[in-house]
Structure formats: C-alpha cells, structure tokens
Design a protein around this nucleic acid. Sequence first.
DNA 1: AATGAATGAGACTTCATTCAT
DNA 2: AATGAATGAAGTCTCATTCAT
Lengths: 201, 201, 201, 201
Amino acid sequence: MEKKKVILRQAKRLFAKNGYDGTTMDEIASKSNANKALIYYHFKSKENLYSCILKDSVNAIYDYLINKRDESDNPLEALKIYIEAFFVQAKKDETFIRILMREIASDGIHMSDEIMERFLHVLKILDNIIKQGVNEGVFVKRDAKIVHFIVIGAISYYLSSCLLRKRLSKKFPQNEFLLRDVDNVPLELYEIILKGLKSYG
Amino acid sequence: MEKKKVILRQAKRLFAKNGYDGTTMDEIASKSNANKALIYYHFKSKENLYSCILKDSVNAIYDYLINKRDESDNPLEALKIYIEAFFVQAKKDETFIRILMREIASDGIHMSDEIMERFLHVLKILDNIIKQGVNEGVFVKRDAKIVHFIVIGAISYYLSSCLLRKRLSKKFPQNEFLLRDVDNVPLELYEIILKGLKSYG
Amino acid sequence: MEKKKVILRQAKRLFAKNGYDGTTMDEIASKSNANKALIYYHFKSKENLYSCILKDSVNAIYDYLINKRDESDNPLEALKIYIEAFFVQAKKDETFIRILMREIASDGIHMSDEIMERFLHVLKILDNIIKQGVNEGVFVKRDAKIVHFIVIGAISYYLSSCLLRKRLSKKFPQNEFLLRDVDNVPLELYEIILKGLKSYG
Amino acid sequence: MEKKKVILRQAKRLFAKNGYDGTTMDEIASKSNANKALIYYHFKSKENLYSCILKDSVNAIYDYLINKRDESDNPLEALKIYIEAFFVQAKKDETFIRILMREIASDGIHMSDEIMERFLHVLKILDNIIKQGVNEGVFVKRDAKIVHFIVIGAISYYLSSCLLRKRLSKKFPQNEFLLRDVDNVPLELYEIILKGLKSYG
DNA sequence: AATGAATGAGACTTCATTCAT
DNA sequence: AATGAATGAAGTCTCATTCAT
C-alpha cells in the first residue's frame, strides 16, 4: 500500500527528469526499492503507470486553480491569483511542468482524451478571466490566448530551467547575473502583463 | 556528401518529434535511406549526432539574431526586431524549439559546454537590449530576465504546441476558439511586453 | 540456479576454445540453452562473465595445490607432488590452461588485480619448495623461477597442444611419432627436473 | 611498396597482442597510416593477411634454426645451440611466440597445412639432436618429445610473460623477486636439461 | 597505389514484460 | 503483496568487405 505510493513518486521524478523513453522500469524499481514485477502488479504497464502520473498531476493543478478562482470575481485580482496559483502549484510539483513540456514537444503522444480535456479546463479558467476583463473594459481588447502562452510559457520555462541555470552560472561566472533566479516571478509577471493589458481611461 | 546532410535533416526531425531516447538509429537510417553503419561512419555515435544537430541549431539562431541586432540600436525597435527574429527563426526551424524544450526539461543532459555558452550569448543579446532601454529611460526598471522568460517561453510554447492544439480542436470542437492560432504572435507579444515595460512621461 | 552453472561451464569451454573475442554471447546462450538476456541477468556483461570464470579457475588450482602441499615437507617429494598436482588439475580443467595461455599472450588484459594476486600465490608455492630444497642442500643453487617456467610452460604447452598434435599426426603420418602423447608427462618432467637440480653428495 | 611492409609489421604486432579476433582491420589501417581499402588491395582478406604473417614467422624461425644446426654435430653442443637459437630468434621476433601460443590454444584454427608442416620441421630438428645423443650414449634414454615441450614451453612462457611480470611486480612489490627477469634463460635452461639428460659413466 | 563512402551481417547490451512461487 | 528467474524484441554499435574513383 505504501509501496505503491513510493513507486508513483519515484516514477514521476524519473519521468520528469528523463522523459518517458529515457526512464526504465528497472530504474523505477531500484529507486523505489521495489521488485520490478511488483510495479507490474500494481500498474499493469509502463504506459499505464505514466498515464496515472499524468492524470494525477493535471487533476491536482486543475483542482487547485478551480479552488483559487472562487476567491475573487474581479478580473484584475483574478488574473493575479491565477498567475500566482499556477506558479505555486507548478513549483510545489515541479516534475509536472517538465512532463508537460515534453508532452507538448511530442504533440502529446501519451495524453489520453480524458487528460486533454481536463487540461483544456485549466486554460479555460484563464480565458474566462481575460474575457471578463475585456467585457468590463478594464483590459484592452486582445487575443486572450496570447496571455495564456505568456503565463504558462514563462512559468514553465522559468521553473524547469532552474537547475540548468544554476549549473550554467557556475560554469560561466561572468554571466552569472543572467542566470540568477528572479526575486518574485509571479509578481513581476503579473505586473508586466497587467500593465500590458490594462486600459487607461 | 549529400547523404550526410540528409541524415542530419532526418535525424533532427525525429529527435524533435520523439526526443533523444524515443528516436532509434534504425528509424533515422530508414528515413534517410541510408545504411545504419553509414550514420556511424559519419557521426561516430548517436550522442555525437545529436550533439552536432544541437550545435548547428543554436549556431543558426545565434547568427540570425546577431545579424538582425545590428539593424537598429533603438531599444524599442531592437526589442521588436529581437522578438520577431526569434519567432521567425524558431518557426523556420521548428524542430529546434522542441529539442530545446526537452533539453531544458532534462537540465541539458546533452548540452556540451560549447553549446551552452553559445546559447548564453543568445540571451545576452536580449539582456543588452532591455538594459539599454532602462538606461535610456524608455523602459521601466525591471529585471530583464523576466522578459527573456516571457519571450522565449511564450514563443516556444506557442510554436511547439501547434499540432497538439490542432488535434485538440478537432477532438473538442466546443473549445475550438481556445486552440486556434493567434493571428500575429510576435506583434501581439511585442505590444504587450512593450506596453508592460514602457515608462510614460 | 542450475542455469547459472550451465552458462558458466559452457562459456568457459567456448572462451578456452575460441578466446574472449572469438566467443559470442549468442554462442554461449545457445550452447547453454539459455536466453541471451539471462546471461546478462546473471553476469552483467561479457567481461564480467569472463572474469568470474578466470577467478574460479585460478582459485580452484590454488586451492588444490595448497591442499596437496601439506602432504609433504620434503622438498624432493614436494616438487614431485607439485608437478603432478598442477598437471592433474590442469588436465581435469583443460580449459583453464588455454585461457591462461591467451591471457599471458595478451599481457593479462582481462586479469583483475585480485586474480593476479591469487595466481602469484600459485607461483609462490613452487618457489618455496625450490628455496627450501636449496637451503637444505638437496638442490643445486639455481634461480627458482626457471623451474617455474619449465613446469608451467611445458605442462601448458603439452596439454593444450593435444588436439592439435592429434590432428597433425593424421595429416602427416610420417611424423606421427613426433606428435604422439607422452606416456607419463609429470613423471618424465619431474625426473628431468629433479636430475637437473639435484646436488650429489 | 613500403606501405605493404608497414601494414605487415603493424598487423603482426596487433595480432600478437590482441589475437586474430581481437584485432580489427580498422586498427591495422590506423596504426599503419593506411587506408583500409589498401589493405584489401594488398592482402585480399584478413584471414590471408594473418596467414602471410604466420607463414613468414614460421619460415624465419625455421631458416634460422636450420642454419645454426649446421654449426655442430655434437649433440651436447647442438642442444645448446638449438636452445639458444630458438630463444634468440623468439626474442628478436617476440610477436611470433604470442601468435604461436594463441594458435596452440585454439588448436591451430588458422594454420594452413603448409605452415603446419614447416613447424613440424622445427620440432624435428630438436628431435634429431636428442635421438643422436641417445644413440651416442651421451643422453639417457628418454622420450625426446618431453624435451621439446620443456624448451618451447618454457621459452614461450618466459618471453611472452615479460610485460605481464613487469606489471605485476609493480603492483605487488613484496613479490617482486618472483617476477624479475632471469639472468640468462637459455643457459639456465640448457644446464638443467643437460644435467637432466646426461648419462654419467 | 590509394581513398572516402557505403553495406550486410552480426556483435554486445537493454528493455518491457511475464512466470512460477 | 512480493520476488528471482526468464524471455523476445529491439537498441546501439562494430566489423570485414566492397565500390567508385
């Protein structure tokens, strides 16, 4: 019972780090101190194990965002909350963002319809916020999707490149300033986007 | 001599689509109508083949950006040109952005120091633009890095998700509007960022 | 558990006959009626499989000689026993001598430090016998090492050339007498060496 | 013309060190600074190249021994000359002895009939010496073949183990004395054998 | 005489998966 | 729930050899 969770956790870590094809069942078994056959006992197949992990992650982020959404119906604040929530959740489960990046890079080979739909809902939350803002006249009219690419793209890119930047800044100390962490990413991001969207009147 | 280029092109396509571990030498050989041993004759190993591809791509984008940079020294225009150039080049060589995403997701396992340094230079070009803008008082003071995450993150995410979005919009027609392509990404992106950065008065 | 031993035995036979590079894992698998992957399951690599075999063989001959050594502390008899024991053991495990010859021919590429040390012990047993004999005045003073080269060289050469001589004697019947087996090799050897070493008083 | 000899020399060195299967045509090409196809141009095939080398070596030792044989018809001296000649020639062309050891270990897979016959002649020279000695009453009656195994076995073993012993004596300095070179191998060998064979009277 | 490119066969090794217990 | 042994397919890489020039 406990073992199953350990397997899930370790598998997730490995899938995030090395990708689906770069992760072996042997590695998962060894990192979770489990017999390889036990993984099959619990999860049927590698594909299924991966699928479980993907589903859990998408559900977690969806549930979190849905919860936070209800904290405000003011578009300005809602946008801020959305960005922060996405960031917080993505940081808490850093593996997810890496898995997502790989899925996008491979056109979602491993994503089931169910998972895709759930992910669409995540986007829709942001879309609604922008639309409401435009309707209420607080945002300039602009394709809401571009905001979505900015938010998810920037956060994904920032979070998943943390280790790489750390490594680079050691190797190239003269460019260290380029690679240092940003103080408060969600706030900076929010401020730029907000200023970029806000209609003055 | 021709064959070598064919192999490079096909390998790149496959690495972009399926990742390093998801691509087999057999597949590359078959897609480039080459004998498998010939790939080893020209490229020594899978790792080395991948490395060559990575290097070529990073060099191409670097050269293109360096060229474009010299077209203006006005930070506002330079920013616009940078965004557009990055977008154009990334779109022309769509495979690169996917390879890059995977590399970031795996903390750059396959990136040699040489390649990393070259990639750092790409970032530095943007950093200099922002810094000049802040110095000249046309941009509000803000951590230049966040802009970099927005530009590269959003463009990467947008471009590499094209096919996935197309697939999704067929499967979920009710949400099709969410997934449609944005009319003019670099322009929209530039306008939001510019508005978000510009200092008034 | 049984399979592992079968693999070891068959691998040993093949390595002896065809050398390390001349033996394929496919061949070993087929001769031991085992799946190739099973060999890797039990032995990790070809190199390691070979190493195990080498270690076992050296240990076997060492243990046998150590045991026999204690049967006498008279140098004359001890020398006789050593020669006979080495011969008997080498004949019982004929593969070993061939493997050893190849190892020597290639300067022990595959010999680990551990194995080398064990083999050194084998030499030391003979060395001690000769030295004791010289000290007690029953042997003329002579470099003990030369005796070692005679014993091991002659026995190795004799035993491993058995099949070749048989083949040759069929092909060249007029020289058959040159190639026939010697009646009692260890005894003949012992007598020559003893006579060659003995000091007369 | 020159290249052909370089190829032969380098191939021989490699075959001696790594065996037939352990040596690749690529390696030979690279060590002789020749194009791989050139080796095929000169030698048809790997097997043939090896065969040429084997033949040359056996012929060289045969010619040398035949020459030396005529220097004496006294069995005692002839034996001494034979041992010394075999040793000198084997030392001059150290690769040969290693190749021979491997051939014996693998029952002479690569030895053509022609080469085998020539090698038989080498043995016959020694056989004749011993027989003459027995006939003349200077040697005790003893199977001549055993002397042959002693001479060839001991010399082969001694010469081909030189590097290995050097390596070992560095790794195990406390046993260095066991591994040091013998001062005058052919003399020591001759003296033991002579004393072992001589009939007193 | 000499070479760069090309190839088919096969080598070592790994992997997801299953089975018997 | 848990495990050691076993397997077929496939993956990376090497090798002897040939071809066109």
